[in-house]
């Protein structure tokens, strides 16, 4: 984060070109199945016109810098995909709420909860 004691000037957190930052990190991870599924859902739903890539970005931006620092990439993406699908009327919050509770009741791991 840049140290900026001045009042907010309109430059948003995600618009980071030119900010001071440390060395470029070299860690690399392989994508897990659930991350690939999030990626696939984004591509499929946007290609079918349920939302746009800019809609995806808009929600990611509005989630703020704290989400950028505390959630990983595909966690932020699924949160944004969900927000866009609800805004588009593809399903309701109530439908999601009930299904999430059902999912969690299946078991404590991703494999059990996703039914394999």
């Amino acid at each position: 984060m840049t140290q900026n004691p001045d009042p907010f000037d309109g430059k948003r957190w995600h618009d980071m070109g030119g900010d001071a930052a440390g060395p470029v990190p070299t860690d690399q991870h392989d994508f897990s199945l659930w991350e690939k599924r999030v990626d696939a859902l984004m591509v499929i739903c946007s290609s079918k016109g349920h939302f746009t890539v800019d809609g995806l970005r808009r929600v990611l931006e509005d989630m703020g810098p704290e989400a950028f620092e505390t959630m990983n990439y595909y966690e932020r993406w699924i949160a944004s995909v969900n927000q866009n699908l609800i805004e588009a009327g593809v399903y309701t919050t109530a439908e999601l709420a009930q299904r999430m509770t059902e999912v969690a009741a299946r078991g404590p791991t991703y494999g059990e909860a996703s039914g394999g």
Partner: peptide, 13 residues
């Protein structure tokens, strides 16, 4: 300009 919302023009430019 420095509007709020989703904009694709980077502030540094």
């Amino acid at each position: 300009d420095m509007p709020p919302g989703h904009v694709r023009t980077p502030a540094y430019l």
